[in-house]
Each structure stands twice: as C-alpha cells, then as structure tokens.
Amino acid sequence: MASSTADSPAGLSLEPQSRRVGEKAIVAWLFLAALAAVLITIAIVVALLEPAAEFFRFVSVTEFFSTARWTPTQADPEFGVLRLLAGTGAAVLYSCIIALPAGLGAAIYMNEYASFRVRQVLKPLLEILEGIPTVVYGFFAVAFVAPLMKDNWWTWLPGQLGEEPGTQFILAAGVVLGIMIIPTVASVSQDAMAAIPRGLREAAYGLGSTRMQVATRVVVPGALSGIVASFVLGLSRAIGETIVVLLAAGAMANLSILPNDPVFTMTAFIGRTSTGEIAYGTTTYYSIFAVGALLFVVTLVVNLISIALVRKFREVYE
C-alpha cells in the first residue's frame, strides 16, 4: 500500500518478494492428488451400488436376507446371502482365534521382552511376511495345511466334530488366514506400544512393576487404540481375502461353523462367479455386486464398532 510504504524507512518492504509460482503449482498438485483419492473412492462405491440396486429390483432385500439357500447358478436360483455371510464369519472367526492372541503376544514380546538386537531382526522379518502374495498362502493352505490336518484329524472328538474333513474345510482356511494376518496385527500393535512415552514406562518400573505388569497395566491400555486398529486391519484383511478361502474353504454354501465343514464365503463367491462363466445382465450377474456391496457394509460396520470401542476403553496419555 502506497501510504505505508511512504512512511517506512528506505528499502524496507514487508510485501511478498516473489510470486512463489513453484509453491502454488505444488500445492495445486497435492490438492489434485487428494481429490483424486476421494473421487476414486466415490466412483467405486457408485460403480458397486448401481448394479447392486439393479439386483434388488429382482430380489427384495428381505428375500436376500431371509432365503435359506444360496444357489445362484441353478435353473431356479435362490439368493439367501446369509449362507455366504455365515461362511465368511466362520472362516474369519477361526482366523481371529489364531491371529489376535498370537499377534498381540508377538507385539508384547517384541516391545517389552526382546533385546534390542532381537527386535532389530524380528520387526523387518514380520514386515516381509506381510508382503507375501496371498496366492502363496492359498497354495500353502491347499498343498500343506489342509492335507496335514485332514490326515491327522482329531477323530476321537464326539459326533460330527470327529469326522475327517474333505479336502476343503473351514479350519484349514481359518488357520491360514490367521497366519496371514498375524504380521499385520503384531506389527501395527507394536508400533502403537513403542509410542508409549518413556516416562510412563519408567513410572511403572519405578513403582516395582514386573515386565508383565508394565505390559498389561500401562503399555497395552495406553496403546489400545493402535491395538484395536491392528485387529480391525487384520480382520478387514481376513474378511476381504479371496484366494485363500476360495482354495481352502470350498464352494459349498453351508450354514456351519464346524471346523471340518466346507463353506462358501462372500469373497469366494465373487471370485469364483466373476471369472467369466456368467452371462451379463442376469440376476446372478448382479448378485455379485450385491454381495460386494454387503462386503463393503460389513467392513464399514467393523470399523465403526472398533471406533466406538476405542473411544470407550482407551487411556489417552499426554
């Protein structure tokens, strides 16, 4: 402004010294990148919801959730999605029984007990495990885990539990899914534990806590949001995983959580059915999208529940 520059001593100017074109360009580029991520997500949801809505013109929502059978490829198809939902639930249940305690235990061990050197080796190793393609795990399930379990089945178990399974069954898929997500749970949990301020840890040790007490009373409660995040991340991976359940759990839409029964999961159905054997525009074709949308909703609900849990239980340190 002319008036202020007139009063100021010669040569002093507080106005911008350059137009900073480069910075503006970079900011614009960063904004576009952020915008693209949001737009792509919206586009995916729309692409999913449109054909899913088409499906619900043929099959009502009530019918979708109340029909007892899932036979989309038969002459008179029935779409009872609960069968698939239960299949996913069963496989994920077993994977969680394996992965949550093992992952959390590994994280506590690495953070509280392992020496610096051991941690330096274990952590990168876990991160490498996270990067193994899931088809490798699928193959591992079919070629190794399933036959091993089948041949050594606990036949002394009472009733149906004691029956030797076929080549594809829930437990094989669940165990391998569990092994697959252990690194995710362990690694993310340990990051959260490592962020606990040193002062809290020292306070706990200073009061005569054992390592286990420091872990269970200070570190785990303080890192709870990160630990729950690791569970949700693992759970989401298990729910969304396709190839392992397709290979190991089978394609029989059973309503069962027995470990030796085969099941058909939502992802396995999508993977199997969308590989070309289905005619475009049929109800069965649209059912793929309906199941996909349901999968999306399930993951969303899991996330919402976890946010609510974290709000209720975590201890916020400063």
């Binding site: 005569g208 054992t210 200070v218």
Partner: peptide
C-alpha cells in the same frame, strides 16, 4: 523389582498414568 518396591522415585516431568 524388589529394590524398586522399597525405593520410590519421582521424575523430572510429572508422569501420572492416564
């Protein structure tokens, strides 16, 4: 641990548990 149970400590930065 037995030592620390007899000898308490107060630190530079207040560090109450959350």
């Amino acid at each position: 641990i037995e030592v620390r149970r007899r000898i308490g400590m107060v630190f530079q930065k207040p560090n109450p548990f959350p």
